[in-house]
Amino acid sequence: MARVLVIEDDRRTAAEIAAALGDHGFDVECAYTGRDGLLRATAEKYDAIVLDRMLPGDLDGLGILATLRTIRTETPVLILSALSAVDERVRGLRAGGDDYLTKPFESVELTARLDVLIRRHSMPQQETTLRVGDLQVDLLTRELRRAGRMVELLPREYRLLEYLMRHAGRVVTRTMLFEEVWGYHYDPQTNVIDVHIGRLRRKLEEGGEPQMIHTVRGSGYVLRAAE
């Protein structure tokens, strides 16, 4: 079970985050001050840290982050901030953060992003083929087969599918897909991504195969091997 440290000064927010992460299957610990958080982060081993950007006292989020990176603690850090994206995002990532989420956020967004961070950190990607159920992609030739049938994809569709396959079985939100596949950072308030996913789905199911990309209500998608 993945261990996650939550450094957040507001106890109710911390409790909600802990509850959401706990429901998702994480083992959660909370620290309510920057000092306590830094102590725990250096003394113990965590799989990920959720760090509030604004902490009271002399040690704020970016200070903790900078200290951790200085002493070569490579635990992935997701920064939470009430400062809406703006320049703060760039600043947080430059300071050594691995991802950035603006308050208020949805719990699915937080857990999905943490999943990705932990997986990215724990297993370096060296494989040349990805396989989920009867879906198989050759990462070198970019050839995709479903149950032996060749599927032709546009470059963008290929990237969408590759990302979903790398995180198979886990929820991936629309914003994450947009950031990863298109490379721009904002929350597109449209259903355009649904349309892209719809196209991808049709291509994957052209041969009458069962559905693999499932919509998670209100938040995103999950790719699962068809039963």
């Binding site: 320049d87 760039v90 490379g183 597109p188 355009v192 349309v195 892209h196």
Partner: peptide, 26 residues
Amino acid sequence: GARRAGFKTLDLQPVITDVADFYEPM
């Protein structure tokens, strides 16, 4: 005017192509 840290030197054409690519299915 607070959002300047994301500024970099860029070419408009690829951004336009990306937008078209993103909205094309819609």
